[in-house]
Each structure stands twice: as C-alpha cells, then as structure tokens.
C-alpha cells in the first residue's frame, strides 16, 4: 500500500485545508487575519488551494500597528492583488486617536498590546463571526492548550477553563450572537514545518526574511532595527550588520538575527541548527512575564 502514503507535509496540508473549508461552510462572515509574516502567507497559500479554482471566500484583514516593515506592506498589497482578495486594513493609530488610548512609552514602545482594541473594533464593524489566524501550538505554552476552533466571548476573551472538547476531526463552530471563533488551521505545524512547506510549494516571501544589510542597535543581546519607532539613547551603538528576520511583526518588538543566509535552503539550514526558539530569539514582548501570552489571550489577543 506504499502508493497511498502521504508524507507529513502533505498530511498537515490536508488537515489545514479541511479546517479552512469548515470555516467557509460553518460561518456567515469569516475573515483571514493577515500580518505579512510567513505563517499568514502560508495560510493564504492554503486557502487558495482549499477553494481553487474559486477565489478565497473571505477578506484578508490587516491590523496595522503603523510600525510595519515597508517590505511587508508592499508584499501584502501585491499578494492581495494576486489572489484577488478583498484587503481590509484598520490602523491602530486611528483607534488610539478616536478612543484616546494611552500609548506605551519607553525605548521600544510597542503597540502590540493595543492591537487587540483595533482587532475587536474591526470584528464588530464587519460582524466577523470567525477570524482565521496563523498561530501555531509549538510557539508558546498557552497556545499549546488552545483549540483549533477557539470560542471567544463578546469581549474577545479566551477562557482556558471553558474550552470545548475537540474530538476527531469534528469542529463545533456554533456560537451565540456577539461571540466569535478564532480558528488556527496550522495549529499542528512547527516553525520548521512551515519553512519546509514554503520550500516545497515555492512560496515567495518578503525580502526581509533573507540576509540583508541594516542599521541596528543591540539591546540585551537582541538586534533591533533602527527606525522612527524606537528611541535611540546616548549609550546605544548604531551598527550596520548583515541580518535576516525569523519572524515579521511590529518593528519595535521584532528582533533580527545576524545571518548571511540569502536563500531559502540556507535559512532552513540555519533554523534547523539553531538552539534558540523562534519567540525567544525574536520577540521582545514575550519576555516580560512567564505568562505574557496567556494574559494577552484572555484579553482578546490572538
């Protein structure tokens, strides 16, 4: 029966496509949350396959912190055009102004936490009942316990103690008015699975994932790109280094990795060999407390 053997990437793909189709079938108004990072790019690729030859039956939604890498924004616009998807962009900047929110201050003042406000407003504005995200369970301890269909109350809050049992491949997407479901089709993928899939499927990525020269400062061992969004203090040394990004998020809280890896093969070789996790190496915002992610999720974050 060797002919009917699917390799692990094909199995993961089949599962993710199944989940995306469940979302389209069970919900009235789903949306795909697109960050410009490799995980959400992979999601768009999977969605394309799931509904081919038709178009992706939901919009791509970007919650824009205003602190993006320009390369990621250019990539986003081109991708939406290529797949003929509706692109909805809502800016954290506007939420801050309209709701008079207090912006965090400090060296790397991140709007990551404020994103949740804009996200919840956007969900309400469009009446989205399901939001598809690219989170993976291998990323973080709290995510390891979250369901693939994760029901959130009208405040977007995750209640880890009241999760629905998720049995076999049966996804219960029934909700009350006002609630919504966060859906994570690539829950069972690891960082390396995503990279290997990108290579197998020849998915194009924004250039910042590959080695390039950039002005950075070093902060507690992490390299942060010099931009208008961070404060350069007197003691900081601005250096020009060859770097690449392992994750792509807000410029203020995503760190770069020193690297000469210019091709996908070289990047995958480096990631295979690394002894530091994706979030540990590149996310400044998760290092605050042991339960940083758990707390954010309970407040409506992804």
């Amino acid at each position: 029966m060797d002919q009917y053997q699917l390799d692990y990437l094909a199995q993961l793909e089949a599962e993710s496509i199944y989940i995306l189709r469940e979302v389209a079938a069970q919900f009235e108004k789903p949306a795909l949350l697109f960050s410009g990072g490799k995980d959400s790019i992979t999601l768009v690729h999977l969605a394309r396959k799931a509904f081919a030859p038709g178009k992706i039956p939901f919009p791509l939604v970007h919650i824009d912190t205003g602190h993006n890498f320009p390369e990621a924004l250019a990539y986003r616009d081109q991708l939406a055009k290529d797949v003929q998807a509706t692109l909805v962009v809502r800016k954290v900047e506007d939420t801050i102004r309209e709701k008079k929110l207090t912006e965090p201050k400090g060296k790397f003042a991140s709007r990551n936490w404020l994103q949740t406000h804009t996200l919840l407003d956007t969900i309400e504005e469009f009446g989205f009942d399901a939001c598809i995200g690219g989170a993976r369970r291998d990323e973080e301890k709290a995510r390891a316990k979250e369901r693939i269909f994760s029901v959130r109350d009208e405040f977007g809050q995750w209640n880890p103690k009241l999760q629905r049992p998720e049995l076999w491949s049966i996804y219960n997407g029934r909700i009350h008015k006002g609630e919504n479901v966060r859906v994570f089709p690539i829950s069972n993928w690891t960082e390396l699975d995503v990279w290997n899939y990108i290579r197998k499927e020849k998915i194009e990525l924004p250039s910042i994932y590959f080695a390039h020269e950039r002005e950075v400062i070093s902060f507690e061992g992490q390299l942060v790109a010099v931009s208008d969004f961070i404060r350069i203090d007197e003691g900081d040394v601005v250096e020009r280094k060859q770097v690449r990004y392992r994750t792509v998020g807000d410029m203020t809280c995503t760190a770069a990795v020193e690297s000469a890896a210019a091709t996908l093969d070289e990047v995958i070789d480096e990631i295979t060999a690394t002894r530091i996790s994706e979030r540990g190496e590149t996310r400044i915002d998760d290092r605050v407390t042991e339960a940083a992610m758990e707390d954010r999720k309970k407040n409506g974050y992804f």
């Binding site: 369970r137 291998d138 301890k141 709290a142 390891a144 316990k145 880890p160 103690k161 999760q163 829950s187 069972n188 690891t190 390396l192 042991e290 339960a291 758990e294």
Partner: peptide, 20 residues
C-alpha cells in the same frame, strides 16, 4: 502550560507537543 496548572502542579487540559 497555564498559570493555574503551574501553581497547582497539575495538568487540567490536553496540551499538544511537537518534536521530530
């Protein structure tokens, strides 16, 4: 995984782990 579990030293829910 969760704070309550760490505090009480128990597992409440199913967690998924990955290795290869």
């Amino acid at each position: 995984g969760l704070r309550a579990e760490r505090e009480q030293g128990i597992t409440i829910d199913v967690a998924y782990r990955y290795f290869s």
